[in-house]
Design a protein around this nucleic acid. Sequence first.
DNA 1: CTGAAAGCGCTTACAG
DNA 2: CTGAAAGCGCTTACAG
Lengths: 355, 355
Amino acid sequence: MASDENPPLRRGPGGDKKPTINDVARLAGVSKKTVSRVINQSPFVKEETRENINRIIAEIGFSPDPQARGLAFRRSFLIGLAYDNPNPQYVVNMQLGMLDGMRGSGYELVVHPCNRSNPTFIADFRRFIERQRLAGVVLTPSASEDDRVKAVLHEVGTPYIRIASVPVDDAAHMIISNDRVGGRAAARHLAELGHTVIGFISGPTSFRSSQERRGGFEDELKARGLDLADEYVMHGAYTFETGVSCAAELLKRTPRPTAIFAANDEMAAGALHAVVRAGLKCPDDVSIVGYDDFQIASSVWPPLTTVRTPTRETGRMAAEKLIALASAGAEPPQQAAYETSPALVVRESTGPARR
Amino acid sequence: MASDENPPLRRGPGGDKKPTINDVARLAGVSKKTVSRVINQSPFVKEETRENINRIIAEIGFSPDPQARGLAFRRSFLIGLAYDNPNPQYVVNMQLGMLDGMRGSGYELVVHPCNRSNPTFIADFRRFIERQRLAGVVLTPSASEDDRVKAVLHEVGTPYIRIASVPVDDAAHMIISNDRVGGRAAARHLAELGHTVIGFISGPTSFRSSQERRGGFEDELKARGLDLADEYVMHGAYTFETGVSCAAELLKRTPRPTAIFAANDEMAAGALHAVVRAGLKCPDDVSIVGYDDFQIASSVWPPLTTVRTPTRETGRMAAEKLIALASAGAEPPQQAAYETSPALVVRESTGPARR
DNA sequence: CTGAAAGCGCTTACAG
DNA sequence: CTGAAAGCGCTTACAG
């Protein structure tokens, strides 16, 4: 039971080394090239030979070494995730979703948190995809929206999927989250409850998601003859604190808004906080709608009506699509799934407008 | 500007392939073995030769291919993180901390969320460390506490670091979070504020962290002549909801507790919620202390007094220690950093006891 | 349908 | 202090 700290000596006293392609070839009485054909699902192997080899592979528990395969293929069996979204729940759900889509594929997930305003951002990203010769990489907003990133991707030739709220690339490289649709849903909900004086708290204006959520919200209001006046729009930063301050400001307007739509849950929770501190009641005096349906939306009181973004599912779709891209031959992969749909989740923070 | 979806053809029209060790050797007029010595910091290279080679390496921007090195070394340049803690902020901070410690090392971080109650847990974990021949792996609670995991680790021979609240392995493989100390700090704080009737909400009893937090809390109370009676102890599950229900129960006790210590922030936020719903005020009627200092602690009103665990720093220490382990020769690495200290953060959810 | 040779980019013994 | 040979475990042309 002695442990061994010397890296070169990996196996225990038994010396039971992992079987290699040579072992399989010897046992099957074929060349290793034929075994390789079976591993790589080449159609040019006699059915009988294939079955025999597969039986032996299963018997001795052989699994091809991704490093050796990678060296020969000039690419690894690693899939990268590059992100700069600061929300932990978004990040974790995205990772879980990608792992869902990668299960059984033999790929492993390597993570790369980054920061677009860092001067080494691009150099770091390039090294990330180049050094270990990633099989592919998924990018989430707002890193996914960066044009310099796209340039590096094409230059290095790494397969990639960009997740964004609008198409910023050809369909083969995109998963679209349709935040505009979510914004419309929020507006529809509030309008149907009879609200006419409505406030909006945006996220950082540099974020497409924020622009889209606002755009959809305004469009739908307009379509219903309602107007989002400038004094009823505040600019937050997707944080709880900015939610508090922006909402506090909105509550000073005359007439006071009877509903507030915040571009994410964090700010919506802040807005709720501001409403309570102002001595008002939610939803009786002010209805509040958030966006994302992260945990905070159900942890506050009253729980927030919000727009759910299927983050985990998005991650799964991205990984599946990326794997298809990465393992595709010359022919472009099938028209894979391409967009996700946000959905309104009605909870207790919204109610009918009171005069 | 045409993009190319065929993986084998990586580089653009320029055909500018990455330089290899052979290029460096040719340019330097030495054998590639000598270049290899320089890369691996062998002392057996003439100073002049080394400088010349390093100059050429920098000039042509050579960086050794980790896959090829890995194949020869029989191990990759990947470091794994295996975790089953469901808190997104913990996970993200741990990843960020590890990345802090890995920066510039040439290693990449690959993640493995897992679930101890899954029947394939051990098999999956084994495949995770074995398939890509991880250079090392870090485990966090409660996965880190699993004896089966330790057995696999020793069998495969992968270097590892286990993060836990108590020593469950030799010092070379541990980072200890000393949750007992944090529990004591919470007790000291409440005792000094004059509280004598105190409630406790534990986490899952299977978690060492929960046991330790409670242990330290009780020890310190006892040392001060205070007692934690059974009726004032409730068992939660580290979730907001269980915090609500456990606190609601505690508030029914006679005499009613004037303070509650919850074993994590999530439950403390739930307790706060229960206090407010019971028509009581925090901290006037009931003081509340949490544990972790995650974002939720500052997002509620009043912001929670809590015990801060330095998650990110812990991740950095673990990665640094692991890299030392992985690159060590036969000799055991220096006695590296070994434990972290929790610290009380006083905010507005605690105040003097009122009779 | 199958195989012998050469190679992916590096390293480990073994010499000198 | 330095190098030629063999090898890590797989794959890609090229033959047949």
